[in-house]
Every structure is written in structure tokens, then in C-alpha cells.
Design a binder for these strands. Sequence first.
DNA 1: AGTTGATGTCATAAA
DNA 2: AATTTATGACATCAA
Length: 474
Amino acid sequence: MCSAINGVLPLRISCEGLANPGRLHGEVSMSTNVTGFRAQRSPQHLDMDLAWQELMAITELQEFEVPNENPFEAIPYLSMEPMVSQGGFGMSQPQPESIPATCDAHPAAVYESAYPEMMPPYQRLNPHMDMHYSLPVHSGHGSSRMITNTQALHPPLMSLLEHMNMTRGHGITKDGVINLHCTGQIKQACADDPESDSGLSLGSSPPLASPENAAHGVPSYLPADGTMGYTENESIGEQCRMQPSLLGSVDYQQSYSSYPGTSFPTPANMQPINQQTYQPIASVKQLVLPTALHDLQLNGSGLTRLGAYQSMYSKPKSSSVPVPLSRDERRALALKIPFALDKIVNLPVDDFNELLAQFTLSDAQLALVRDIRRRGKNKVAAQNCRKRKLENIVYLENELGQLRAQREHLTRERLEFQQNLAIIKHRLSDLYTQVFSQLRDEEGHPYSVDEYLLQQTNDGNIYLVPRNTALEGE
DNA sequence: AGTTGATGTCATAAA
DNA sequence: AATTTATGACATCAA
């Protein structure tokens, strides 16, 4: 019979205590070629051979692989005894390419191909984080594979979110100058209480270092006539509102030369702003700011000089939309910080210290400058932090989508497997029936499916073994 | 008037 | 030790 399966496969019946010891010795390991089967082929034999052939030909089932760590449900697929010894289904061999076809078109794949160099934002953030976001459906080996696969699909969220960069438009240019407009919208900012500026957290600055306190605590170089004697509450915006015509005539597109040529308006070069060329810092390095400011305020039109001073913080008015000064900008203006805010924030610490060394600043000014630097850096950090947070959200949502697709795929595979398993069981049952029927006919031994089973060993031979020894025989 | 998103700021920890 | 960076929490504003 089995010779008909592949021509070389003998059916060896290893059976203890068989009724016919002449053919089948009582040794468990002893086997006998049942060549007699071949000589006595009957239509029933042919059917049985055919059944074997069918059974063994179901290669697609042998290749059918379902990860045994199916995370969704532990199903005892292999509970049926006849199937145990076959072991040809590779159910415990998840394939690396087991990413479902439904995932192929997933955006992540596009991301991967388009941005292969990119790390997942999640991993960029914290390479150890994967241990935290493994979903419950992951467990053991399968989870790591799954994660590995999905991690290979990095969404380049940076580019997607680049445009989300939170630039609120403070009006600070690269050169560190600030747009100063005194029309329309500035009125609101001018009229507003500076302390009600966006983001102000009240009462959290140290009293001594507080720019608010500093602004009020160091009025020494504020002129007695009040021309520049605004407090922060009145600020420059207030004056803008009061003198729109003067300020409006200022050429706001004046900008200072970029670092390191920081410049500062001195009494000497304090000309009408639209004609002025600012001097590099080297030429004013010895300037003592309060004195200079005092001179500045005492000579000529105060507001014209104010405009010049403001242009320190102004940026070219490239847009027609006026940008109100931020709180720190107003403070810097109030305390007459002699350099651009973006330099305060963006210069490396050495350059920053060098810049500070170029001026004699009061404690209040120094405190303000350092506060501005700290806040400015933290502002950028907060923006980056939020950007990363968004990227991670997008990335995790993307990954969740992949996992769901993978789950659907596995569910479909499981269903298909179960259907095929049912077919196999049915065919195997038929086969058993035929084999035992034939053995009963030929050997007169009442082989029962309940007592014996067919078992294929690694060498490909099929044995008829008692059930109670079946596993040991393997 | 309450909600929500964006943004700035502060405090704190970590690098 | 000083500085920078990251992040949670909170406040404010605008839609």
C-alpha cells in the first residue's frame, strides 16, 4: 500500500503483540515490509493509496504557517492525535514576510521607501521606549518580530510636521531685529496690560531677578521729562500710539548687522534713522550704556531716537501685518537692552558672555537678558517637545493601524487553517478506515482506530503503532 | 459662557 | 557648577 505512495516508502507495521508474529514480530522497533500488499492490490488499495497521495500532496497545508504565538487566541489546533506526529504545518514558524498583503500598501511602507534613513520618532525620542508601548496583543517572540517589522516602517513625520512648526510670528528676524509697527493692531498690544501678555505666568519669577521688578526698580536712566520715562505698563507701544506719525516715519527696515558685528546706536551716530548706518560693535565697545542712553535722550528728538532704538528690536516689515511686541521685547525695550533679542537667545554661551562683556549692564538688565535667554531657549524647547509629541502620536496611530491590519490577516489565516484542518481530518479519517479495514481483511486482526494509529517517522516510513506507544515511538 | 487648540512660561530633572 | 535640553503642568488667548 505505502509503496504506492512514493514507490520507496514501505509500510512498516511496528506492532507489539500482533496476532501474526510470523510477519510482524513482537518487537516494537521491528518492522516488516508489507510487500504482500502490493501483490494483493485491490480497488480498495488503490483508493487508499490515492487517499495517501492526496493527503501527502497537500503541500499548501504543509507550508501553511501560522505563528503559534497567535496573540489573539490560543487555539489547540493540533489537539487531534493523528496530526501531532505529522508536524508538517510549521505552525510555530512565523515568517519574516508574514506582514500581510494588506499592509503592503500601508502608508508606513511608503514612508520607509521615501525616508529610509529616518528613525521612528518614537525611537528617536527614546530608544528604550519600545518596551513601553508593546500592545497587549504582543507577547513573546512574536511580538518582537512584529515590532521589528513595524519598526522598519518609519513614518517620516518630521517632514509632515515641519510646517507645523510653531512660529507665532513674534516679528523677530534672523538678524534679531523686531518689527515695530505702531498702527492698527499695535494699539491693542499697546493698550493691553503687558503683564497680560500671552503665556504670562504671574508671580513665578524670583523677585530679584524678575524683569517686572527690574523694570520698575531701575529707573535711573529714565528721563525726568517722561519722554522715555515709560514703565513697562506704558511701554513703547503706548508711545507708539501717542506718536504714530513720528514712529510711522521711521524706516523699520533698518536692521542691524548680524552678529558678531552687533551694533548699537550711539549719540555720535544717532542720526535720522532713515539715514543711519549702524556702527559695528567694535567702534562702540567702550560705550557705557546708561550714559549713552542718557545722552541719547537729552539730545535731539527723543522719539526719533526712540524709533532708532526700537529698530534694534524690529525686523524688516516684510509683511503688512503688524506684529505686536512680546512681553520680553517690551521689557528689553523698557530696559534698553543694547542688543537684539535673538542674539540673546541664540548665541552660544561663549559668544553670549562675550556680548555681555561688551556692555556695562545693570543688574536689572543682566537679569532680564538672562531671563530672556532662558525663556527663549525654553520656548524653542517647548516647541520641539510638542512637535515630537505630535510625531509620536502620528507614529503610534500608524503603528496601531498596522497592527490592526496584521490582526485581520492572522484572523483570516486562522480561519483558513481551521478549514483546511477539517479537510485533513476528514481525509485522514477516511484513510484510517481504509487501512484498518484492509488490515482486518488481510491479517484477520481486529485493528481498531481506538487502539492503533498510523505514525510517520522522520525517515518517511509509516508505522502502525499502538496508541499508548505512539509518542514514545517517535 | 464653555470648549479646545496653540503658545508661552515655569519648575524640575537629566544630560 | 553652569548651561542646555526635555517635559509636565499651568495660564492665557483666540477661535
